[in-house]
Design a binder for these strands. Sequence first.
DNA 1: ATAATCTATGAAAACGTTTTTTTGAATTCT
DNA 2: AGAATTCAAAAAAACGTTTTCATAGATTAT
Lengths: 347, 347
Amino acid sequence: MAATIKDVARAANVSISTVSRVTSNAPNVSSEIRKRVLRAIAKLGYTPSVIAKSLAMRSLRHIAVLMGRTKEQAFANPDFMQMLDGLSTGLNKHGYNLVLCTNGDQQAEMCHCMNLVLTGAVQGAVVIGSFRNDPLLERLVEARTPFVLIGFPSGQPDIHSMPYNSVGTDDYADCYEAVRYLIGLGHRRVGIIYSSLEYTVNRMRYMGYLDAVADHHLAAEPQLMVEATYAKESARSAAMRLLSLPQLPTAVFCTDDYKAANVLSVAAEKNLRVPDDVSVMGHNDYDISTMTYPTLTTVHVPLLHLGSNAADLVVQAITHPDEPNKNILLPSYIVKRDSVAAPPARP
Amino acid sequence: MAATIKDVARAANVSISTVSRVTSNAPNVSSEIRKRVLRAIAKLGYTPSVIAKSLAMRSLRHIAVLMGRTKEQAFANPDFMQMLDGLSTGLNKHGYNLVLCTNGDQQAEMCHCMNLVLTGAVQGAVVIGSFRNDPLLERLVEARTPFVLIGFPSGQPDIHSMPYNSVGTDDYADCYEAVRYLIGLGHRRVGIIYSSLEYTVNRMRYMGYLDAVADHHLAAEPQLMVEATYAKESARSAAMRLLSLPQLPTAVFCTDDYKAANVLSVAAEKNLRVPDDVSVMGHNDYDISTMTYPTLTTVHVPLLHLGSNAADLVVQAITHPDEPNKNILLPSYIVKRDSVAAPPARP
DNA sequence: ATAATCTATGAAAACGTTTTTTTGAATTCT
DNA sequence: AGAATTCAAAAAAACGTTTTCATAGATTAT
């Protein structure tokens, strides 16, 4: 068995409290004794038990991270790794550990997370993506758990005023701008492929599109708006639908690069040239957006920074529980590559 | 504050041992008392503290997962999410939690991991990818921590006999077969873009290439073998080098799809048709391999299953510490898509 | 020189469980 | 009927820390 504080105390011929004082760098311990204790610690290879420490201090430095809210999304759009990276590194920097919750469906996952919270296994949580009326959030505030939301929508009054910490990009504004950019280029028929509106991110993006179209006096034609899941087949069939329309859209905007990449390949199959015949625009600036042909024009989302900011924010929420909620908005911007151009001249 | 077992005991007017018996479904408790306790638990909203429980039972059901060994790789090739998914879901199924270690460099990460292990914060570990003479492994066995390696190379005697649990694909054989496939198609000049040989996976793959070339009496021309990191620029410049050779390779094999995708775009820029002018083959079967143009011929690696198998294996190693090490080899296979064909006829 | 104040250390309580031991009552055996 | 056995429940010990409180010796102030 591993050596305990008692063993060290005995070996150094001091009391337990003294050992504890040494390990926690407390003042008021003579250098002679300190040396003796340190020697004993080294000799026995002693490492304090986090569990015992946590019990005594009533805190385990763990943070739950829920990705599964958007599991389908998370694992289909694997650049979420960047977010995880930022999260993990950021958390570790503060001395916290990241425990990942991604088991099964949303229901199971919520239970798992709440279990971690209620049993004291974690001190806080970061929720990646949340859907409409997500019950998890209520449960979390009910349990008085410090937490932060990543990808929280802002720019929309009803949600902006909600009492959560959050870090995100302005999905609504970003999409509005993206579509405005396309319209500015001369496009009059811009289609959209979007994902389940149950997820707030998607809803915000969708609304950004809608408003941009409306504000520029273009008709919101239903056949130009098609929903797709994160599955490849779904994205492909959505693209197929759009690109088989009697009157083609001159541009199609996708709520993520993944879908956009699929539009690209469907276009290639149908012998449509991008961007000559049709422009394609993505969102998120995933790595793949530079690897497609042509490369994707998209809106850059700082995934890594979303993660690290969220990390900073949870630990702040933990250490200063009385401070008001913060809503951090990270800058995002359009990245112009090769898949977007002015529409073809009218025949 | 949250209710404790004492509160429940008091409310139900029983001893704390009785409450414990109820919560742990122990026998020997009358149904009347059980009901009373259950009622008190419900009324107080009591959830047992994992920390206290862990202290008493000397075990926290946490598993450390180290991705950062190949962090550059992991985060650059984001399909590692699939592996994480398998891992997390598998672990949760067994009632364990996944704590992610990915902070900073290898050195820092090793310390972090060993810290988790030594302080008892985790009961076991799964190491994703390991490099040559990885010191972590020794430390781990030294600490008698149950752990399993993902991506462990096999088929090579010196390593196969090592005393670790592992799950992986046969990287050596897979690459050997892949290259053999290209050669079988008629290719005589097949180039390779590979990654740092410090990582065992990469070394095995590289050796598979080397042996396949040698066994078919082709010259191992140094200028056909170029190393690249996982960074996009590096992959591109490697591709550029290969595709600028006075005598072009007729096929280039890449140790991952990411590199292959970059070869594709460089080829497009140089007006080389794939696969007509040059064939390109990848490895891993990342999602992107179906989204490139043309789609990538590659070797499929069951990332999700690597993860779930690893999960099963660690908990087995934990629960049956005396059993001998297992080395699980998962099947992999070549996926034929559009980027590979017979070489162009000699002019 | 005595009292008051510090200071380094030790003793013990606390953290919230599980587990072992003890107790007392009910049941069974002879 | 008395002893042996079983059983439900309580009491207490243990898990490995931190932290509060007490104590004795040294230092300072009066």
